[in-house]
Design a protein around this nucleic acid. Structure first.
Lengths: 234, 234
DNA sequence: GCGCCTTGTTGATCAAGATCAAATGGGAGA
DNA sequence: TCTCCCATTTGATCTTGATCAACAAGGCGC
């Protein structure tokens, strides 16, 4: 684990969360934080711990998951550059999810107390935080309706469409991370994820290993019943 | 539909959302809002509409639900005194859920634009909003894990425990609203809700119609596998 | 290059929950 | 008090997805 001070991190400063805040304040936040490199498959924090850091994934891949006593379930796959567990940090409450790296990752760790303190002083940061939390809330509403209203192959289809849209609407792309994690995120077993890919062949999806090609976007969309409200602009 | 100005609404002023704000600002918000009475089974707004009002349920019962093309699903049952759809209002985005009254309800309607404007001016309100959104986010995280990790009878058991805890830990209480709505909230059919009550008989729950008595809290808790993190203090 | 170990896939069976159908029962209105 | 109506319950069957088992396919170290 390598520690390093942040010289200048333009991609972090450009994040919606920090973009509009006072420059001196931002400098204060960043200089009080650590940019740290973690190896793959490392647990970053556990459910139930008091939130000590706000995380910003700069590079790599992180999984957030919740644990029952029988099995775990993936709640979110975090891609760079994104902050996560903001809610626990804001309210100074225990994490509701655990986190682990899926790949070697560079993560900015902002001390939670520092974050809360600067939020109180900098209105722009507070507003951005509010905005971000509202977006996160809406994401969760969508995830819950997805779970309740779509069946498994439809969820996969919907995920592929959203994923493709988030990555520049390329019709061909590669899945990041393992399929078992994707299966857990989508609330199904790895076996059923395989079968779901099989089902989607008839609805415009060609999959070879991690390589996905959406050959008929309209058909896939019809099959997976898109949300009535289009995704939020971020 | 009766319109009325608000004279003084102490229970609204005491809400966490409005509690800490400047008195003059609060007066401005409240005097720009309407307290309105709606009959049961009335649609308050539809999914996809631009958020025009923040709602505060003062009295009655409201259901928030999301619609697929095949079936709907209940997302939340709002009890007084609580605000809802805060996220859509803050971000000036379309509602992700529709709302209908389940009983005759008195609702405070705060114009969304007014809300956003006052939030910008009053830091205490902004902070309270941020706090509230973070709590809402955490609620949704719990709801999603509930859906993914518990099976139906366990979800019911968990719901009964939480519901009872929210209402002063009484061991006997009455379910508000129809069971079909509860079934939809819990992500099951009414038929299976009945059967789930049957299953819970063996785990310390006596149910006669809407009357529920938790006879063995420990047994029910063991059966429904409580969250690893206790409910957030509000 | 070879074998091993992990990951993903395919097949067979099982369990949970949905659907369809019919009966029960409680409350509102006559 | 008596009906009628509608929510709920109960029963039977069907569908979806989970589980169990076995196999294929890479990727990596030796």
């Amino acid at each position: 684990m390598t520690f390093m001070r942040i010289g200048e991190k333009p991609e972090i400063a450009r994040l919606p969360l920090f973009r509009d805040m006072d420059d001196a304040m931002r400098e204060r936040v960043l200089s009080g934080s650590f940019l740290q490199v973690f190896p793959p498959q490392l647990t970053l924090f556990e459910i139930g711990q008091r939130a000590d850091f706000l995380h910003v994934l700069v590079d790599g891949l992180v999984e957030l998951y919740a644990a029952g006593d029988v099995r775990d379930t993936t709640m979110r796959i975090v891609e760079p550059v994104t902050s996560y567990i903001l809610a626990a940090v804001i309210n100074d409450m225990p994490y509701l999810m655990s986190a682990r790296t899926l790949a070697s990752s560079r993560i900015l760790l902002v001390p939670a107390a520092l974050m809360r303190e600067v939020i109180k002083r900098d209105t722009a940061l507070m507003q951005a935080t509010m905005h971000e939390l509202a977006l996160g809330y809406r994401d969760m509403v969508r995830a819950l309706t997805d779970m309740k209203l779509r069946q498994s192959a439809e969820r996969l289809g919907h995920y592929l469409l959203e994923h493709s849209a988030r990555h520049g609407d390329k019709q061909e792309f590669e899945l990041s991370g393992e399929k078992r994690v994707l299966a857990s995120l989508l609330g199904m077993t790895p076996e059923n994820l395989s079968r779901a890919f099989g089902t989607l062949k008839a609805h415009g999806v060609a999959a070879r290993g991690a390589k996905i090609r959406i050959e008929d976007r309209a058909a896939l969309s019809a099959f997976s019943r898109p949300d009535p409200v289009p995704p939020d602009q971020r």
